[in-house]
């Protein structure tokens, strides 16, 4: 939503601003006052967040349906996730929410250094979060736990453009050896046949896990993009007590990303 079409238009509007005879900074000409503009922007962002809640909500629904109907498959799944890494990520995001809220207060009270500093820290937290995610994802990928892994690899390697490489078969068969060792670590000894069966049975759990965390990760990246945009404008000194809407609204988006993770963490990592 903050991608290129708006970038062209924002540039035009800023040029407008330089020559426009407005009293308040960045007051759009179709608004009567900064208060009206801020109220509209705030409401608009909340309406957009509503749609994000429902987007993730669909995945939460799928999760609920599968967990209710196949609880045993979800029991196994969480053994392969590190709850402490998940907790670290949770703390990182909560901290980033704090710094984002600080950034908004800083913009409102005209403290530019605090604003820029807070935004940078928020960004770094985002980087940290994605870093931990990368570590987790890599561990899963190495053991074949990602649903559709072969097809994803084939797709990314552009196999679909080459005539000589057919699409891999659908199916899910992670590394049975790894599964057997992992189950043994958690106190359950199984033979090879059982390990293979249990490995295949991890499918609904990891389908949900990757669906939800990947979509969430994409939103974190989008949020980081938005924060970068706000950061650039903060450094240029656009924001102050009369105009801080964008900081506030991007902050709302970032808090939503945190909010969703607050629910993802127990549902995926803390199944007992």
């Amino acid at each position: 939503m903050f991608a290129s079409p708006n970038a062209v238009i924002i540039a035009m509007t800023e040029a407008d601003q330089a020559t426009h005879d407005n009293h308040a900074p960045f007051l759009a000409h179709h608004f009567d006052s900064p208060r009206q503009q801020f109220a509209a922007g705030k409401l608009g962002m909340w309406l957009f967040l509503l749609t994000e809640i429902l987007l993730f909500g669909g995945l939460f629904c799928a999760y609920s349906v599968y967990r209710a109907n196949h609880p045993e498959m979800f029991q196994d799944g969480h053994l392969f996730l590190d709850r402490y890494l998940g907790a670290v990520n949770t703390c990182v995001l909560i901290f980033s929410s704090l710094t984002m809220a600080l950034a908004v207060s800083a913009a409102q009270t005209d403290r530019r250094r605090l604003l820029v500093g807070s935004l940078i820290v928020t960004l770094l937290c985002g980087v940290g979060f994605m870093g931990v995610k990368f570590v987790e994802y890599k561990a899963k990928w190495d053991h074949g736990l990602v649903p559709g892994q072969e097809r994803i690899a084939w797709f990314v390697a552009l196999g679909w453009l080459r005539k000589d490489s057919p699409a891999p078969e659908r199916g899910y068969q992670p590394d049975a050896d790894y599964v057997r060792k992992h189950l043994a670590e958690h106190g359950e000894e199984v033979d090879d046949a059982e390990a293979t069966r249990r490995a295949a049975g991890l499918f609904p759990f990891f389908g949900c896990y990757f669906g939800m965390t990947a979509l969430h990760g994409l939103h974190v990246l989008a949020g980081m993009g938005a924060i970068t945009w706000v950061l650039v404008r903060s450094i240029k000194g656009h924001f102050g007590p009369l105009y801080f809407g964008p900081v506030d609204f991007v902050g709302l988006y970032w808090h939503l990303v945190d909010l969703i993770w607050i629910y993802l963490f127990p549902l995926l990592y803390l199944i007992h």
Binding site: L49, L50, I53, G57, S97, G251
Partner: peptide, 30 residues
């Protein structure tokens, strides 16, 4: 997070209506 970080406590009540209606619709669906 919603009440304090996202200011909903201090905000125009309609924004809270927006947020709650999202949750209610989701609950209905699930």
């Amino acid at each position: 997070v919603v009440l304090y970080f996202m200011h909903l406590r201090y905000d125009h009540p309609f924004n809270a209506v927006v947020f709650l209606s999202a949750l209610l619709t989701l609950l209905l669906f699930i």
